[in-house]
C-alpha cells in the first residue's frame, strides 16, 4: 500500500443532482488534494452495504474533492441519498492512476459515467502542459460516448480546460449517432502519424475491446485504460477484484485500476 493512503471521516459539502441519475458530491481534504493522482479512487463506507464502494476522483479544486457518479445499484443509490453535512468514512487515495505523457497529443475517451476520472486527468494534463515548450503544437481532445443525451455530462468543464469535445450517442440524440469508438477511429485517422499521441480511456469493457482493435494498427500509440471491477477490501489484501492480464491475474485495486492496454489485450 502506498504511503499516502489514509482513513478519513469527512463532512460532505454538497451532494447535487447533475442530470437524471447522475450526481456530484464534494468534500474538503487538503491531504487528498495534495497527493492524489488522476485515476486514483476513494473507498467509501456506506451504512446500507456490507462492503465499501470504490469511486474515482472526478476533479479537485481548492482542496475540494469531487466525486461524480451514476446511480446503478445499492451503493450508489445510498450515496445519492446523502445530504450536505452528512459524514462519510473514506479510505484513499488508492490505486495506480494514469501516467501522464508529456509532449504528446492527448485523446481522452469516456464511455458513459466513465468520464468521471477523466476530468481530473484533464486538469493534470493542462497543469503539466503549461510547462511544456511544445504546447502550441499539441492538442487535447475528449471523446464522450453515451447511450443518449441525458448521459452526456461535463462538456463545459472540459471546454474550460481548453479541450476539443466530440460527442457520440447511441440513439443520436446528441452529437454523432453511434459509438465513441467511431469517433476515436476517425480522430486517429485524421492525425499525422509522425505526431505522438496518447489515448486515455475509462468506460465499459466492451468499449475497451473496441479500442484495442482500433489502436492495433498504430504501433507507436500508447493507451491507458481505467478498469472497474467489484471490490472487496480495495487495499490489495483480499484478491477479489482481479482481472486477467497477459501476465496473469492482477488486482484492479492495487495494480490498477489503470492498466496499459498492451498488458490486457
Amino acid at each position: 500500500m502506498q504511503a499516502k493512503v489514509k482513513q478519513f471521516n469527512v463532512k460532505l459539502r454538497e451532494v447535487k443532482k447533475v442530470k437524471d441519475d447522475i450526481f456530484l458530491l464534494s468534500f474538503q481534504s487538503s491531504h487528498i488534494a495534495r497527493v492524489a493522482q488522476p485515476g486514483n479512487f476513494l473507498h467509501l463506507k456506506l451504512q446500507s452495504t456490507i462492503l465499501r464502494r470504490p469511486l474515482s476522483i472526478h476533479k479537485i479544486e481548492n482542496n475540494l474533492i469531487y466525486i461524480l457518479f451514476k446511480v446503478r445499484g445499492r451503493g450508489t443509490k445510498a450515496l445519492a441519498q446523502k445530504r450536505k453535512n452528512d459524514r462519510l468514512d473514506i479510505i484513499g487515495p488508492l490505486g495506480n492512476g494514469f501516467k501522464i505523457k508529456k509532449g504528446e497529443n492527448s485523446i481522452l475517451v469516456g464511455g458513459g459515467i466513465g468520464v468521471a476520472p477523466l476530468l481530473f486527468l484533464a486538469q493534470k494534463l493542462v497543469e503539466c502542459s503549461t510547462f511544456n515548450v511544445q504546447r502550441s503544437t499539441l492538442e487535447n481532445i475528449i471523446l464522450l460516448g453515451a447511450k443518449d443525451r441525458k448521459e452526456v455530462v461535463c462538456e463545459k468543464e472540459f471546454k474550460n480546460l481548453g479541450f476539443r469535445i466530440k460527442v457520440a450517442t447511441e440513439d443520436g440524440s446528441k452529437g454523432q449517432k453511434g459509438f465513441v469508438t467511431d469517433l476515436l477511429k476517425k480522430q486517429l485517422m485524421a492525425y499525422d502519424l509522425e505526431l505522438r499521441t496518447h489515448v486515455y480511456a475509462c468506460g465499459p469493457k466492451g468499449m475497451f475491446y473496441q479500442i484495442s482493435k482500433i489502436v492495433k494498427q498504430y504501433k507507436d500509440l500508447d493507451t491507458q485504460l481505467s478498469f472497474e471491477q467489484f471490490m472487496g477490501c480495495g487495499l490489495g489484501v483480499c484478491c477479489a477484484c482481479v482481472i486477467l492480464t497477459k501476465a496473469g491475474y492482477k488486482k484492479v485495486c492495487q495494480d490498477g485500476p489503470v492498466f496499459s492496454l498492451k498488458e490486457i489485450y
Partner: peptide, 18 residues
C-alpha cells in the same frame, strides 16, 4: 486463484471465491 468475478455482495453478506 479462481476465475473472476470472485466476489458478490448480498443484502447481508458476501460470497467469495478467491
Amino acid at each position: 486463484g479462481n476465475i473472476p468475478p470472485r466476489i458478490y455482495e448480498t443484502d447481508c453478506g458476501v460470497i467469495n471465491s478467491i
